[in-house]
Design a protein around this nucleic acid. Structure first.
Ligand code: FES
Ligand code: FES
Lengths: 150, 150
DNA sequence: GGAAACCGGACGCACTTGGTCCTATTTGGA
DNA sequence: TCCAAATAGGACCAAGTGCGTCCGGTTTCC
């Protein structure tokens, strides 16, 4: 359905919640983040694990541990979050060297023609930051709407 | 995975195949299209049925029947095909009035903020025509790449 | 040393997707 | 008039995958 997974959606919410702690230079533990975001605790944990692997958040282990933002929200492009959860951004299975995903591979008239479309989607998603999605604070200079509707 | 369904992919191939018949003002039957596109016959039939419901192709019933393009390929935006197979183009479940798809609905900080992103994707997809994907013939004036990478 | 917290992976349920097939309806031709 | 050809529409089942949950292991502070 051209939809990204729920986890990706949750990730944005979690990141937005973490941002509030960031301003106080605190770390937040999972239960606290779950409460702040209204999501189930195990789900939040899973989201943060994946975000950690992608380097978007930093996890501090041990007692009094928690999570902290790896970068500021306005430096995290939406595409990074999507890639972390949904894998590479490509509309079709038959891109570049990926053979075998398609049945009409031999005589296919659209072989490789999706590439410009994929690149366009990637670009659009790369120019939106999580800060644009998280709140009314404009920290990027150009609001997302301006860039996107050009 | 931000992927569109295989059926959508096949639809583009099928439409490209139909275009060759269109130039001769002929109609093509399912077996012929299947042969031309290299796809399985029942699959092609299913694709054409859906395309017919969307008005993108016209089916002529009875003996000597077949399928014909509803419009020229360069007048069919990619978004129309995607909508026919994958439903409305929206990255997240929580758009506009669609409540219930999300758990953190009450206190969600990103409620409604996806809309500009969705609109951007929709616009990008609406400016690519099937003709852009189907072959080297440029019939739209501006090639897709130019519009997309602006 | 114990408690608190993250880390990594495995498991199972459930939904969606895809491919196939069958029947009804329509139309052209013998 | 009757039959063959071809679409229309839906039902059906199998496979894959996303999603939520849980558990044991490891690290760090008190
Ligand atoms: S190779 Fe996949 S649709 Fe052509
Ligand atoms: S309402 Fe769905 S993420 Fe906010």
């Amino acid at each position: 359905m051209l939809r990204l997974s729920k986890l990706t959606d949750y990730a944005v919410v979690v990141l937005a919640g973490l941002d509030r702690a960031e301003r106080n230079r605190r770390v937040m533990a999972v239960p606290e983040i779950a409460l702040a975001s209204g999501l189930a605790e195990p789900t939040v944990a899973k989201v943060l694990k994946i975000l950690g692997q992608a380097g978007l958040v930093e996890g501090l282990r041990g007692a009094r541990g928690g999570y902290r933002l790896g970068r500021a929200l306005h430096e995290i492009p939406l595409s990074d979050v999507i890639v972390a959860f949904d894998g590479p951004i490509a509309l079709t299975a038959c891109v570049d060297g990926a053979s075998g995903g398609c049945e009409a591979e031999a005589m296919c008239p659209v072989r490789g023609r999706w590439d410009p479309v994929n690149r366009a989607i990637r670009d659009a998603l790369a120019h939106v930051t999580i800060a644009d999605l998280a709140g009314p604070a404009r920290c990027h200079g150009t609001p997302a709407a301006l860039v996107l509707n050009a």
